[in-house]
């Protein structure tokens, strides 16, 4: 390879780099990842989604700061996690930060992934990419990882910005535990976005038209947030035991109902985040009266909170992986014609 004749305009850094010719060659996956990330950042869609999220953060921050004074009672103990309320408080008009993130993450995930494969397909670039010496899965991996990296950077910086502005506005520094809880919350939000991202990538592999994939993603999201709980309530009402039914029967019924509700990814996310951000939450399922006997009404330590949401966390990661595997399987076996 002619690496000696460096063209005039190039910085010396590059010519120095290209000297050992073989060793510095980037892996195809990294090249693809770079391309995907720059595609994401340049796109209008990303700018729109980002500004939406930033606006929402500002709004919810404003709302929680406004009602902060009212929520703090003089009787409260010292370690009452004031700082976390920045994320969970609402003023009644605007929902809290956590709720908004839970609401927008699906939109973000679907918005970033719904045309990832089918747009390449329709543009005829997929067959060109695939005829390069790269593994087929590296395209899919890059398509998944690039938006995820972008979203992670965005979420972390947003979370930290909210923390910072809260710090200025409140004058109370967060404790180490509060900090850890917030970081975990951001981490779970990213996993939640990853789930929707994978789902929409799967849809983009399945459906040739980007619009169909996007609509399908939104339909699934609406189904899970609006209709699924309604249907479950309707169905379970039919089997609701009377108040005088034996206790084990009632418990079993409640447990089944809880389990069915748990199938919604959004629910998993909400449970996981509220538990982490409200240390007072001690159980997510039905609790009997005697289970509460003798408990000390104090917040849970971080370890216990994590233990409590461990199933939710695993569930979220599991559905994310399931979606990824689905898109993987259908993409790897797909015959790729040019357009």
């Amino acid at each position: 390879m002619e690496s000696k004749t460096t063209s005039g305009g190039k910085a010396p850094l590059i010519s120095a780099k290209s000297e050992p010719s073989v060793s510095v060659n980037p892996s195809p996956f990294r090249v693809l990842l770079q391309k995907e990330i720059s595609d994401q950042i340049r796109s209008w869609r990303f700018i729109i989604l980002i500004s939406l999220i930033v606006l929402i953060c500002l709004g919810s921050l404003y709302a929680s700061l406004g009602s902060f004074a009212k929520s703090v009672k003089p009787t409260e103990a010292e370690g009452a996690f004031f700082f976390l309320r920045l994320f969970t408080l609402s003023n009644g008009r605007l929902p809290s930060f956590v709720l908004l993130i839970g609401f927008l993450s699906p939109l973000l995930g679907i918005g970033l992934g719904f045309d990832s494969i089918n747009s390449e397909f329709n543009g005829g670039t997929l067959s060109r990419l695939l005829s390069q010496p790269i593994h087929r899965d590296s395209i899919l991996n890059a398509k998944f990882l690039a938006p995820l990296i972008v979203v992670s950077v965005m979420f972390f910086s947003l979370g930290l910005l909210v923390m910072g502005s809260g710090l200025i506005a409140l004058g109370i520094p967060p404790t180490a535990e509060e900090f850890m809880r917030i970081i975990l919350f951001i981490f779970i939000s990213i996993i939640y976005v990853a789930f929707w991202l994978n789902l929409s990538i799967f849809l983009s592999v399945k459906f040739r038209q980007a619009a169909t994939a996007a609509l399908m993603g939104i339909a699934i999201w609406l189904f899970f947030t609006v209709f699924y709980p309604m249907i479950i309530n309707l169905v379970t009402q039919l089997f609701e035991p009377s108040r005088y039914a034996p206790v084990p029967y009632i418990i079993a019924f409640q447990k089944i109902k809880f389990l069915l509700m748990q199938l919604v990814p959004g629910r998993l996310f909400n449970e996981a985040t509220t538990t982490l951000l409200m240390p007072g939450v001690r159980s997510l399922g039905p609790l009997t009266f005697w289970q509460l006997q003798g408990t000390i009404p104090s917040p849970l330590p971080l370890g216990q909170s994590i233990l409590l949401v461990w199933p939710q966390l695993t569930g979220l990661i599991a559905v994310t992986i399931v979606c990824f595997v689905l898109s993987y399987v259908s993409f790897m076996r797909r015959e790729v014609r040019s357009r």
Binding site: K17, T125, S338
Partner: peptide, 28 residues
């Protein structure tokens, strides 16, 4: 392929650059 596709929002150089890099050339 027939009707070969390129990334419309990128320049000709950028498109070819991607192929070159995917074929194992370093950026320079």
């Amino acid at each position: 392929p027939e009707n070969v596709g390129f990334y419309n929002d990128r320049t000709g150089l950028e498109n070819i650059l991607l192929t070159a890099q995917l074929n194992g050339y370093s950026y320079g």
